[in-house]
Design a binder for these strands. Structure first.
Lengths: 251, 251
DNA sequence: CTTGACCCTGACGCGACGTCAGGCTGTGCA
DNA sequence: TGCACAGCCTGACGTCGCGTCAGGGTCAAG
């Protein structure tokens, strides 16, 4: 098949296919002697995958890594797509629910403040995280559990959870400023408290998972930035305390 | 509130707010003496609307017309948002169903051709139409009915529907080429058949609605292009035949 | 052998921001 | 009272995913 036919079949423009060819996302498996692009059924399959992941909001570069993932057979792709679509379904349902709540509030004469509206809508769970969270957490049970639990959270729950988190963070910062070593008892205890908190509020945070989180705090600049804003050196400090705590508990 | 706070609350970047200010989509209602942007609660409400419509896939220019729509009070906005979200829910559900069908097919050892996969996924109902269809058809009963009915269509149904449509179109083209006047009996009969077909397959197409469609065929370049590709002058011809048919039947 | 639909490769344009750069403002604390 | 540092300002250029010409070759039907 040549470009025009493929474009019509897939519902994209010829230019899009040219683009995918140029950036190496989807190069037709053949060319005619006169330079016409020739797409094979396998190419069409790949295009199908590409368009699906694209529609799910992934930038093309990530789409490439997803469809090229050597550890993913067709069945794995289907499972992943299914999961992503389910997530999207959930988020859309949540948005519908938010709009309905607003309608209800209006019907009852209650006037929500803009803040409440934003909170209802959950900008703390923005759409962009769809792709991101998937990549970060993948298909882990922890993520699924967290999704299930937080789904039921009310606004007050979130306020409480956030408060608890900030509490531990400020106490970490105080310890750091006081010169308490990261591998000392009190620092390790704080780390343990941090772990328990996550387990209570999100998912069973094992020592192993917690250690992973600790590493992430220094490796992922967004998390690092979060801690550094509270106190310089805090990301590394928390990370070290978590590692020390994991080492102590593992024995 | 100044930009940073608003950005944090709404989950967007400061740059985004600057952008919205520059393009006039959301200009803060005030500035401090030193030029700092000051956002009022009303501004936040507007931002909330903007972000919602943006998330629904509207380009910012259209978002502006939507939020500025003088005929839309808050309740109307909520209803519209609710509708759009429901549509999105439906489409996502359809995609989930498609993936599940693929999984089933695989489980049963059936290998779908790429064509079948694309058809399952319905590129004939692409995501982009979400915003477009809304604007075109708005909240009309016809559109709602069409949505409800076509939702249950199988692949075979679509093939049949498409075939019927093409049948009438080619007969229109033949009449045009044969020099049959657009306001003659046979042409009007074709128009009437066209109307019945829509009524059967999509929604109760009244004479009035049909007349509106006829106008659209010559006014909207995309529809015009569709007919012109079949035969030059066909858009105008079909439009005229529809108008003649409506005039005849109205008496 | 022409005509019109289809294909090719640049190359520029655009929407919705991201990302500096260079400079002013506001505030906690020494 | 001064200063450090976070936060705000306005350009201005960069990026992503294509849309849209421009200029030119190709293919099939009549």
């Amino acid at each position: 098949m040549n470009v025009g036919e493929v474009a019509a079949l897939a519902g994209v423009t010829v230019r899009t296919l040219h683009h995918y060819d140029r950036i190496g996302l989807l190069s037709p498996s053949g060319r005619t002697s006169t330079g016409y692009r020739q797409y094979s059924p396998a190419d069409l399959d790949r295009l199908h995958q590409v368009l699906l992941y694209r529609d799910l909001g992934f930038p093309l570069e990530e789409v490439a890594t997803l469809v090229d993932d050597p550890s993913a057979d067709p069945a794995e792709h289907l499972r992943r797509q299914h999961r992503l679509l389910q997530d999207r379904l959930e988020r859309t349902r949540a948005m519908v629910a938010a709009v309905e709540k607003e309608m209800e509030a209006r019907a009852m004469g209650i006037d929500l403040t803009p803040q409440e509206k934003f909170e209802l809508f959950g900008d703390w769970l923005p759409e962009e995280y769809e792709a991101e969270a998937e990549q970060r957490w993948g298909d882990t049970e922890a993520w699924a559990q967290s999704q299930r639990r937080t789904r039921a959270y009310t606004k007050d729950d979130w306020v409480r959870v956030k408060g608890e988190g900030e509490d531990v963070e400020t106490r970490f910062a105080a310890a750091l400023r006081a010169g308490v070593p990261a591998d000392s008892e009190p620092a390790m205890d704080l780390a343990e408290e941090h772990r328990q908190q996550i387990s209570r509020n999100f998912y069973d945070c094992t020592l192993e998972i917690h250690a992973g989180l600790g590493r992430m705090y220094v490796e992922d600049e967004r998390f690092t930035a979060h801690y550094e804003r509270i106190a310089p050196g805090l990301a590394q400090y928390v990370s070290d305390a978590i590692r020390a705590n994991a080492a102590r508990r593992e024995r």
